[in-house]
Amino acid sequence: MTNKVLLLFAHPSQDRSEANAPLFSIAQQMPNITAVDLYREYPALHIDIEREQQRLREHQVILFMFPLYWYSTPAILKEWQDLVLEYGFAYGKDGTALHGKTFLCALTAGGSCDAYRKGGYNNFSLRELLRPLEQTAILTGMHYLPPFALFGSRKAVDEGRLAEHEDEWRRLLNALIDGSLDLARAAECEKLSGEIAALVR
């Protein structure tokens, strides 16, 4: 079975991106992935609701990809949620369009992994901070997977950590497409990054 992945990429300053840009370009070159650069398609944040809903219907895996801004998504992805996840489409009466799909986030975070925990300076784990998205997935009937994250992203290239992350990114995307990712076990994790090898059947 082949899943189609809808990757919604939100990055407002791609010319300065060191990690997201190469990761996005990897996804762009893979078959069965619709890689959407939201800021390119809607530079004035004027989102075409009909078109975005149609895209959602055509894919089985929905993936948000973004740099973490103030413990949340960049503005366009919030705008996208507010506009596209309509009553009667994503939730409420007859709002079943997303039922049974898989939802996850792939993000880059400036802080180190240690910062995202109780006692670290960010106090909460990444999964905890992304609870609003997790609950959105639950309410719209999607299977939520924990985030696939690159920590310390500002120094990842300098420290030579990006290549390894890229390899894992490729494996994750392939596993999502061919359905070989163990969704039940994946859903239990705090994060997907670093765990992919163990989660692929």
Binding site: I47, I49, D82, L83, E86, Y87, Y91, G92, K93
Partner: peptide, 11 residues
């Protein structure tokens, strides 16, 4: 009318 239309009152 479409963007930010609130859901029905009793939703």
């Amino acid at each position: 009318e479409r963007g930010w239309t609130p859901p029905p009152k009793n939703y």
